[in-house]
Amino acid sequence: MKKLPLLGGLTPQQFLRDYWHKKPLLIRQAIPGFTPLLSREALWEMTTRDDVESRLVTHFGSRWQIQHGPFAQLPAATKKRWTTLVQGVNLHHDGADQLMQQFRFIPDARLDDLMISYATDGGGVGPHFDAYDVFLLQAHGKRLWRIGANTDRTLVEGMPLKILKNFTPEQEFILEPGDMLYLPPQFAHDGIAVGECMTYSVGFRTPSFQELGEGFLHFMAESVDLPGHYADPELEATRRPAEIGSAMLAQVAAQLDKIRPSKDDVAIFLGEYLSEPKPTVFFDPPERPLSLARFIQTAGKRGVALSRKTRMMYAGRHVFINGESFVAGRADRAALVPLADLRRLDAAGVAAASPDVQETLHAWYQDGWLQLA
């Protein structure tokens, strides 16, 4: 897929400076003449799979309901006011993956997935806000968007969805195929299908600091090294046997104070955390993998490309792929960094790579993490 304009004449730098995390942006014909990458039937088929995360939201009568897939059957397309949401379509469809790659002016560490929302007339998920940035690209039909900078976060009680109780829209737009709406985090919005429609949502990761903190402590638990045992040779008799003494508290506190993460610790944790595939992701190794020698020969002519399911990043001398990390020397980085940035390495790059890198590429090929281009 060729590079698309996307931002309505704005450069990525201008968009990030003036809109990102700041205010909404409506872009008419962000992708002129855009048509759906998947048919309705192909999308529905994805909701039957247990390796695809999907949800069904209905608003029949005055009752909201949400169900989680996989689904043996969805409501009829002629029935109004229902929506199915299919997460991570980019993991399962080349066209969706290529579309999401158009948004890589935002770092991979932040880019999450492409979700497709199919809705019948009147369908939606109610007025709500998200904790992350999102691009909403209309793919088929029309959708009415009502948006507003609501400061009232009160939710309707007793609902299976987080629906705002006092939503006050400030602007309304009807999006047609090719139109796109960007919304920053915490900006309230309500999308309502006008007839049958499909909307593609490109979302971004915003892990909470609590989530990161808990993950980091778990990560550090595997590398903590505090030799020795608690000792109190100067212990004196006590009249308060249930009290934890101040000397014990001070000694333990002094030992725990030695646990001080380095910048490398943080980099390794974050790289492994951000590159870890989601639980529903399964890789497809080749049925008849080539031997190392044959793989190097073939890749040296065709190049290699990362699987659309693979997450690969780097920080300094550290390289991360699918939750694993290793240190790469300067020469090896010459091959691995372009592979991470471009998600492919051409034949010349493979041929010029060190034997260690070539063996690593072969191991990733055997695991289904990359394939021959």
Rank of each mutant, 00 (worst) to 15 (best):
residue 33 G to K: 01
residue 316 G to M: 05
residue 136 L to F: 11
residue 372 L to T: 06
residue 276 E to K: 14
residue 272 E to C: 14
residue 258 K to N: 10
residue 58 T to G: 11
residue 181 L to S: 10
residue 132 Y to S: 00
residue 141 G to V: 00
residue 356 D to M: 02
residue 232 D to A: 14
residue 349 G to I: 01
residue 318 H to V: 14
residue 373 A to S: 15
residue 76 A to G: 07
residue 180 M to K: 13
residue 62 S to C: 06
residue 193 A to W: 09
residue 341 D to G: 05
residue 288 R to N: 09
residue 185 P to I: 07
residue 10 L to M: 04
residue 89 V to S: 01
residue 271 G to Q: 12
residue 365 Y to V: 06
residue 115 M to A: 05
residue 71 F to L: 09
residue 323 G to C: 13
residue 157 E to C: 04
residue 235 L to A: 14
residue 10 L to P: 07
residue 293 A to H: 14
residue 37 L to K: 01
residue 225 D to S: 14
residue 211 E to Q: 15
residue 188 A to W: 00
residue 149 A to P: 10
residue 331 A to I: 09
residue 97 D to R: 07
residue 96 A to R: 06
residue 112 D to T: 04
residue 349 G to P: 05
residue 356 D to F: 02
residue 6 L to E: 09
residue 247 A to T: 09
residue 168 T to W: 00
residue 114 L to C: 05
residue 283 F to K: 08
residue 250 A to K: 10
residue 312 M to I: 07
residue 354 S to V: 01
residue 210 Q to K: 14
residue 77 A to M: 10
residue 59 H to K: 11
residue 204 F to W: 07
residue 252 V to T: 07
residue 243 E to I: 04
residue 125 V to A: 01
residue 68 H to D: 07
residue 223 S to W: 01
residue 330 R to H: 14
residue 13 Q to A: 15
residue 177 P to E: 02
residue 239 R to P: 00
residue 176 E to P: 01
residue 134 V to Q: 01
residue 49 R to M: 04
residue 154 T to Y: 00
residue 96 A to N: 00
residue 99 L to M: 13
residue 82 W to V: 04
residue 251 Q to G: 00
residue 350 V to E: 02
residue 286 P to V: 03
residue 274 L to N: 11
residue 160 P to M: 12
residue 31 I to A: 07
residue 213 G to P: 03
residue 209 F to R: 15
residue 197 C to Y: 06
residue 127 P to F: 06
residue 241 P to V: 13
residue 280 T to H: 15
residue 357 V to K: 02
residue 38 L to C: 03
residue 73 Q to E: 14
residue 317 R to I: 03
residue 30 A to P: 04
residue 266 V to T: 08
residue 97 D to L: 08
residue 371 Q to N: 08
residue 70 P to R: 09
residue 124 G to V: 02
residue 363 A to P: 03
residue 88 G to E: 09
residue 90 N to Y: 01
residue 320 F to Y: 15
residue 42 A to H: 02
residue 226 L to G: 10
residue 182 Y to E: 09
residue 50 D to R: 12
residue 277 P to W: 08
residue 165 K to H: 12
residue 330 R to N: 13
residue 64 W to D: 14
residue 122 G to T: 10
residue 217 L to G: 13
residue 118 Y to V: 14
residue 293 A to K: 08
residue 145 W to I: 02
residue 123 G to Q: 06
residue 5 P to H: 12
residue 344 R to E: 09
residue 326 F to G: 14
residue 322 N to R: 13
residue 265 D to W: 03
residue 260 R to A: 12
residue 47 T to G: 05
residue 166 N to V: 01
residue 280 T to I: 10
residue 202 V to A: 06
residue 269 F to L: 08
residue 117 S to D: 06
residue 253 A to L: 11
residue 257 D to I: 13
residue 133 D to I: 00
residue 43 L to W: 04
residue 171 Q to P: 08
residue 157 E to W: 08
residue 351 A to Q: 11
residue 152 D to K: 05
residue 246 S to L: 11
residue 252 V to G: 01
residue 226 L to T: 12
residue 373 A to Y: 03
residue 253 A to S: 13
residue 173 F to Q: 05
residue 282 F to V: 03
residue 313 M to L: 15
residue 63 R to G: 12
residue 162 K to L: 07
residue 285 P to K: 04
residue 191 G to V: 12
residue 296 I to E: 10
residue 168 T to I: 11
residue 130 D to A: 05
